[in-house]
Design a binder for these strands. Structure first.
Lengths: 193, 193
DNA sequence: TATGTTGTGAACCGACCGTTTCAGAACCAC
DNA sequence: GTGGTTCTGAAACGGTCGGTTCACAACATA
């Protein structure tokens, strides 16, 4: 069988995810990834093949461990009317907690979309699917909150939620107040009957 | 007085702006800037002091030559009711023209916000002010379109326009259809009386 | 034409980039 | 134990990074 790895793969990927999140793909240096993961580069390259391989694993972990758990109440068989509000106000609060990754660096995938690595086809598909996943979840959240409203109105509201979240992620690094304002605005639309 | 520069400063800055727009600050290499501007690095450093100095000039040019001319109808003393619709549908069309910088790379300032350079204080202020400028312009555009509507409703609509534009910029690189959908959604809200 | 100033090209700087190599350590099966 | 396989640390790879240096070209002035 051979020598036993001295690390836990999940922990390594999570640590790398944090580095990519803050610094971006091109800005995350191999020494920084070594330091964060505690692994020597030879082990990183042995396990993941390349910096890009580690990045892909980090993106998968971001989707599985960060995005989808928070979206779960919005994609469950039964969606509670408050689910969409809970999600958005939870995000609003997270963007205010200084020091946390989300507050300082927004969203790994939105950041990726704005960088040259976003031109890569595989990355492009991943981020586009992520946006669609967000939109679908918000669509169900809005439907659960305003079941009586007409379909077009609900769709526009779900679109507004999607745009608010994406723009909040995109701007939080430079303008946390503006990011929170975007979320507050759609929260107000969701509060009115 | 000394030797006459062999270049036109404006042309140099505009060429550099394009490189930063596509590649981002950290991704724009000095050789790439030399090639785009036609200047040797010694001339670049003589004129702008550093890569960052050239970037700052490029950002200023982006605001003066790209952003503000398009926003002008929305900040004029008299704002036409169609101004906001004209702006958004113009942006929608621009995001669809393949090959153009806007379609492939979104917005220089949004991209900057999502990158590590966004942590710089001066950059932070610049992008935050840009967002505020956008929001103010859209506010006037919405006011001109729906003068009879209540203030809160107009504010939420202006917020939705701001978020739609920012998110369209943030996503156009990976998801042009999603970006256009965000704009279409607010355009629909602006079409209804 | 002589002088002082400014712009330009080429060569070079140390630092860092992502990646590879390789010897040896740690484990399994026999 | 022995052999085969896998993981790990250190060192080194060529290439590129942003930035500097310097000799010289090109101009304004006197």
């Amino acid at each position: 069988m051979g020598r036993t790895p001295a690390y836990e793969a999940d922990r390594v990927v999570r640590a790398a995810r944090e580095v990519f999140w803050r610094a971006g793909y091109e800005g995350a240096s191999v020494p920084a990834l070594e330091h964060a993961t505690g692994l020597n580069r030879s082990s990183i390259y042995h396990a993941f093949g390349s910096k890009r391989g580690l990045f892909d694993a980090a993106v998968q972990s971001y989707l599985d461990d960060v995005v989808r758990p928070r979206l779960r109440p919005l994609v469950a068989p039964d969606v509670v009317p408050d689910a969409i509000v809970t999600y958005l106000s939870g995000l609003r609060a997270a963007l205010g907690r200084e020091g946390e990754v989300q507050a300082t660096s927004g969203c790994l995938l939105v950041n990726t979309s704005c960088a040259p690595i976003g031109d890569d086809d595989a990355v492009r598909r991943t981020v586009a699917d992520y946006r669609a996943e967000l939109r679908a979840a918000f669509g169900r959240g809005v439907d659960a909150r305003f079941p009586g409203r007409d379909a077009a109105g609900r769709a526009h509201l779900a679109d507004a939620c999607t745009s608010a979240v994406v723009s909040a992620f995109a701007l939080v690094r430079v303008d946390p107040d503006g990011a929170r304002a975007a979320l507050d605005s759609v929260l107000a639309l969701l509060a009115t009957a």
